[in-house]
Nucleic acid binder design. Sequence first.
DNA 1: TACAGTCGGGG
DNA 2: GTGTACGACTGTA
Length: 748
Amino acid sequence: MNEFSGWMFDLYDDPARGVAVWWITDDGRRLCTGHAFPVRFFAAGGAARLAELAHWLNRLPDPPACRLEEQRDLFLPQPLTVLAVEADSPTAQAQLFKQTERAFPDLTYYDADVATPLRYTARFGAFPLARCRVQLGAEDEIERLEVLDERWDLQPQPAPLRVLELEPDCNPASGTPRALLAHCGRHTCRFDLRQARATLINLRGLLVQEDPDVILSEYGDTWLLPELLRMAEEQGMALPLSRDLRRKAAHKKELTYFSYGQIVYRGQQTLLFGRWHLDRRNAMLWDDYALEGALETARITCLPVQTAARTSPGTGISSMQIVTALQNGILVPWHKQQAERPKTALDLLHRDLGGLVYQPRVGVHGPVGAVDFISMYPSVMVKANISPEVPLPNGLEPASDQPGLIPQTLAPLLEKRVALKRKIAALPKWHPRRKRFEALASAHKWLLVTCFGYLGYKNARFGRIESHEAVTAGGREAVLRAKEAAEDLGFEVLHIFVDGLWVQKPGCSTPADFSPILDEILQRTGLPAALDGVYRWVVFLPSCQDARVPVGNRYFGVFQDGSLKVRGIEARRRDTPPWIKAVQMEIVQHLAGAQSPAELPDFLPGALSIVRRALAALSAGRVPLADLLLAQRLTREVKDYTTPSPAARAAAQLEAMGKHIRPGQRVRFVWTRGLPGVHAWDLPTPPDPAEVDCVRYRTMLLRAASTVLQPLGIQRETLYQYCCGAVEQNLWQIPKRLNPQLQMSYLI
DNA sequence: TACAGTCGGGG
DNA sequence: GTGTACGACTGTA
């Protein structure tokens, strides 16, 4: 009897065997098995129409089994009579459904377009990298499958992955790579790309001898792998990138789509079979932890690792919801058919999208405690049991104690994240495991964040706009209760922003001084809150347009451990050149030396000299061009701009060189003098340093500097005169000591 | 001054 | 394949 235990590695449709499942066994083998996997989809509609469908199916050359059943549609109170159609394999199901839908477009379909790995998890409990015990039959097909661990384990036994790293010697977007660097185990090789044949032979040697599980690349999706496959074709050679030799690499086309209110560009992808290809540059947010992040996202979402690594907002959480639905015997709608319930005037009256934002008290404050709800919106969904099929809660009070689909999906994820956070807090900053946990926590974070928005998305399978609104209402309720809690404990609430409160009380300066608030908040809301930290000082900035108007999301400060937090200012923006970011952060870092608001003026002279030195470096041409680069996203085709943005003008330059930039792609450029005012970075010729628009960069720097210096009484004009004007610097009286309270009223 | 275009925010 | 906010801010006409 062939039995083994190991990690589930990869899974995909296999027309002949049902699904192909790859394993890394405990004794180190890489094994491909088949698994018979008949799957069903359902059709709903009038009885007569369903009978016609059954008749039509029976007359197909290879008629599938079908029968009438009662199933549950999440949005319907009563069970629904459906025709269940069973196909021999996922491949057959996809084909059969396509035919069926074409012949009977008027019916409502369920479980029709569910990704096979999700069905597999729902049926057998196995997920990517699950530890399993497997019993095989004579043809290496799975006969019995026992899953030994859970998606929610904090420290699953790591699979012994063999990694081959591949990267070109430069960014193919801006130059022509000459060499390919390969790193695998003990070997590091450099292949000359101009010698195609030798490179391919060597690379094939590496693949065969080392048999890596993962190809971890830079630019592998957008350039390297397609290029290698093209070279192989040209040379008439086989390049076994996929471990499954029957399968070639799969290519997914580039795509531009709307998400999160903006256009997103996703480059093309190259996916392998029996081996993973992960492109570090194409993995969502993880950088150094591309692999860890992808593995965790795969465990949680049940999506294959290669998909999980590249998946876009919504897909991950949607996958989790689908798995929950399948496990609970709830039908998964094909597309989304639910229309919004018409709203009453009263609904509209109560309707206020978004979070609660207070007007902060502008100026310098300290010490200040920052209290945040932990994953507020997901916590609200779980606490108030908000789900499309559950009656709406009253504030934070759930209308039913039978957990809905969404809370069921979220609760274990939230728990896992909180447990991770707790572990992170207990580990010292340098600890390697802390880094790992942080990578995992950040993988969870955006799944949770997306889940909230996804509730309100009209095309989500399990979304409902009213639920979405109930979440924001619950959030506001929670924050208001938190405010009352803090005030009842004698704290002054300086500012509220969506899920965070900034509070202050004379004599309170240590975390312990603020912790009673956390308990009180938990008491009154049932939601967990945490102390983000205690600020030595924090500055809430006024609007740039009107210094009398505070804005909720522009602030910066320094915590007692010396770490900085800045929000909404230039340094946080992705269209700010690195040089400007760096100087602005250097100023804040310098100001961080102040232990209290009262000490801040002592650090003004140093801050001003940072600005002067930076400007001197700029005019002396000592700032590297790369540090003056900025990137902006195209929001439409270049020709569709009425007034071309700088990015559009840079894109036009690239277009003239035959390089088309798609909406959603970022364009990098430097500001230059004269017209068109920009020089695209990815042009074959770099900008002439003499062309750089130094005046503009100086203005931008002064603007960024004055943002962080204005609480010290330095206005933009003053800074300009001081740094660039004719006034001798030593004639300037630097204010020695400002009363922060006075300063505050001045700014207000 | 008005309008067009881009960004953040959740951590 | 999946959030078509909302408001602050900057650049251009």
